[in-house]
Design a protein around this nucleic acid. Structure first.
Lengths: 102, 102
DNA sequence: TCATCAGATGAACAGTTATTCATATGTTCG
DNA sequence: CGAACATATGAATAACTGTTCATCTGATGA
């Protein structure tokens, strides 16, 4: 097994952190935000309109994504522009798709 | 972008299924079960002892994992032996670790 | 400075979920 | 068959989480 981590099992505390990370991916609103951002940087209002949801909802979820370093924010005047923070995001989503699409 | 899925964004229904999948990974008990099973096939009781948790708890969570095709069960006499169902499991966990371990 | 717009935040509520306890199912063996 | 053991399952409970509403902060430009 050419395995990166499992030769030595991840410790228990790491698994708690990992669960927290996957919790973030385990919500469709957040997934929709992330896939929208995989296309281009967007402001909060643009995301809200794209998803047909309230600005407040999006803002709350963006905070969760930011805290988990999955998105990054940049201010431009009155708007905040969000984008994906790193490539792991796309890769994690792709792995998940691999599983459910058999 | 040499991207497998994002050239065409995943549809909304797919994202709901995907969120459900990640919800399964978003619980430390289930993650601990999966990492334990990444080492070897184990019976319900063996898992319960390894994690220091009740048989019932493990059994409930194994059902969730089974329903999501993440583990597979095999009966041998009185015991049920569980193992990981496919390689995606390890890969998804590895991707997550990549993110949190920077 | 003041009105306006974009975004953030806190409290409240409803819905979901993990665990426990008690019990049921199913298998083995005497 | 009946006892003993392994696992599954249902109901109950406690904790958590996503959304909404109302409000606040902060930036712009007239």
């Amino acid at each position: 097994m050419e395995n990166k981590y499992f030769s030595e099992l991840p410790g228990e505390e790491v698994l708690y952190d990992l669960a927290d990370l996957f919790k973030v991916f385990g919500d469709s609103t957040r997934l929709r935000i992330m896939t929208a951002l995989s296309q281009s940087e967007l402001s909060v209002m643009q995301i809200a309109e794209a998803l047909g949801m309230e600005q407040s909802t999006i803002s709350h979820q963006l905070r969760v994504l930011r805290q988990n370093k999955l998105v990054r924010a940049r201010r431009d005047g009155k708007q905040m522009y969000y984008s994906l923070d790193d490539d792991h995001v796309k890769k994690i989503i792709e792995m998940g798709l691999d599983h459910i699409l058999e």
